[in-house]
């Protein structure tokens, strides 16, 4: 669990519930831990802040190496921005360029426009209540990216081999279906 900033404890709690007794969650705030992990979660928070910490500490490089060697990654909201290949109109920081998508920050507006919605998700037999908080959205993608859910013409849940990117917060609702997909990838 990348634990520099954001709703880390909610993510840890949700992942521990999904794992049961089959594994443990460790917090990553410096180099040396990522190479030993079987899966990596990038939580929600402020993408600019998290990116700065990833760059300053070298953990960002470790994640790139792990992702390229096939370690599964689940990235939510700010995390999605951080692992994207390209960010619309962003010059303040460099993303990790792992997920072949073009992402727009605050795609729906400010906090006033944050919303909850019942999403239709590819492969789920009932709607998924998703929480979008100053959420990004995917406005462009490469052929190797599978779209799992959309809002209008934008993608909000995607998968590309070992990478899962979600524009919303599966850690805030108690519905662990995305966590289960992620754990199946490990």
């Amino acid at each position: 669990m990348v634990a520099f900033q954001g709703d880390v404890s909610e993510h840890v709690h949700a992942m521990e519930r999904a794992l049961g007794s089959e594994g443990s969650v460790v917090a990553v705030r410096s180099m040396g831990t990522v190479p030993d992990c079987d899966g990596i979660v990038l939580p929600g928070g402020e993408s600019t802040t998290i990116s700065r910490h990833l760059a300053r500490t070298g953990v960002g490089d470790e994640i790139q190496v792990a992702a390229r060697s096939g370690v599964p990654i689940m990235a939510t909201c700010a995390g999605l921005i951080v692992i994207s290949k390209e960010i619309v109109e962003e010059t303040r920081f460099e993303p990790l360029r792992l997920l072949n998508v073009r992402v727009m920050r605050n795609a729906f507006g400010s906090q006033r426009e944050s919303f909850e919605a019942d999403l239709k998700v590819e492969g789920f037999d009932s709607p998924y209540r998703a929480v979008f908080i100053r959420a990004p959205a995917i406005v462009g993608w490469h052929d190797d990216v599978d779209i799992l859910a959309r809002i209008e013409d934008m993608a909000v849940a995607v998968r590309q081999e070992n990478l899962m990117g979600l524009a919303f917060h599966p850690e805030l609702t108690g519905d662990l279906r995305f966590h289960e997909i992620f754990l199946d990838m490990i």
């Binding site: 954001g6 928070g45 906090q111 944050s114 919303f115 909850e116 929480v131 100053r134 209008e152």
Partner: peptide, 25 residues
């Protein structure tokens, strides 16, 4: 997905926003 199906300003969204600030200045 129609825009009128969206719910705004719920307690979950308000408290959730604050949670995204954790560990920050």
């Amino acid at each position: 997905m129609q825009l009128e199906e969206l719910r705004f300003g719920t307690e979950l969204l308000k408290r959730g926003f604050a949670k995204m600030q954790k560990g920050g200045v």
